[in-house]
């Protein structure tokens, strides 16, 4: 990328301004040492979250979408120090499932990778429809899913603000132009989670994700030879039956 360094510098400056804003507002000083500790905390947490996601990567999957959603919901606000005991107990429980042969969904159920807009609360109707149609969601590549936990931040960098800038600039959000990393991340997730189809959830009037959906769809169909379904929806329940028909049809054709 010709001017990637410029973008990093700009974004580091914005993060620096946010730091000043927080310091001013709360009459405090945020030291480099404290930022470095917070970076380490995030990295430890992300490592364990990825270990948990790995249980969905297995065939069959041992982790349900509800459990993934529960954990990502709490792991966003919680520090690693606070959430570590819970994550440890989850890994133990998942390991037990594996040993006892308890898994999610029925044998041979179609594995689905979700991508697109943030999907939470009432929008999880799409997940429920997929599940009711017999599918198993194995990866949620959305902001409400795995996205915040997949990268690590450079530790012991000479400037921790710059390290933060580099990490956040890597987020494959459709607001980025160009958003080449979205497809790179898709490649990695498909390789790891071995989905049988990709479902792109687009919230009404989200032009960024909606337009980018074309690129993602072409990439998934051509490069990975996988079925791709774009679902444009909102938070109402009026289209649940229609979404179910589309999902069921896709499953039948697979």
């Amino acid at each position: 990328m010709p001017d990637e360094d410029g973008a990093k510098r700009n974004w580091a400056e914005v993060i620096g301004r946010l730091k000043s804003f927080l310091e001013r507002t709360f009459h405090t000083t945020i030291t480099e040492h404290a930022i470095e500790s917070a970076i380490r905390d995030t990295n430890r947490k992300n490592t364990m979250m990825k270990k948990i996601f790995d249980y969905a990567a297995g065939t069959p999957s041992y982790l349900s979408w509800q459990e993934m959603y529960d954990l990502t919901f709490l792991a966003q606000p919680a520090s690693f120090t606070d959430i570590e005991p819970l994550l440890e107990s989850c890994i133990e429980a998942l390991e037990n499932r594996k040993k006892n042969g308890a898994y999610i969904g029925k044998e041979g159920a179609p594995r689905i990778l979700i991508t697109g807009c943030p999907v939470g609360g009432d929008a999880t109707k799409v997940f429920k429809v997929i599940e009711e149609a017999g599918g198993v969601i194995v990866a949620i590549d959305n902001c409400t899913g795995m996205k915040s936990f997949l990268d690590t931040i450079e530790e012991n960098a000479s400037d921790p603000i710059q390290a933060l800038a580099e990490r956040y600039l890597k987020l494959p959000c459709s607001c980025m132009s160009p958003n080449t990393r979205r497809l790179e991340q898709m490649d990695r997730l498909i390789e790891l989670f071995k989905p049988d189809a990709v479902v792109d959830v687009i919230l009404h009037a989200c032009h960024g994700y909606n337009i980018e959906s074309y690129k993602v769809g072409e990439h998934v169909r051509r490069r990975h030879k996988l079925p791709f379904l774009k679902i444009e929806t909102d938070y109402s329940d009026g289209d649940v039956r229609q979404i179910a028909t589309r999902i069921e049809t896709m499953f039948e054709m697979m």
Partner: peptide, 13 residues
């Protein structure tokens, strides 16, 4: 997800 939570935690918030 672009909000750098590390800065928030760094000031013990």
């Amino acid at each position: 997800g672009y909000a750098p939570f590390e800065l928030i935690r760094a000031m013990d918030a």
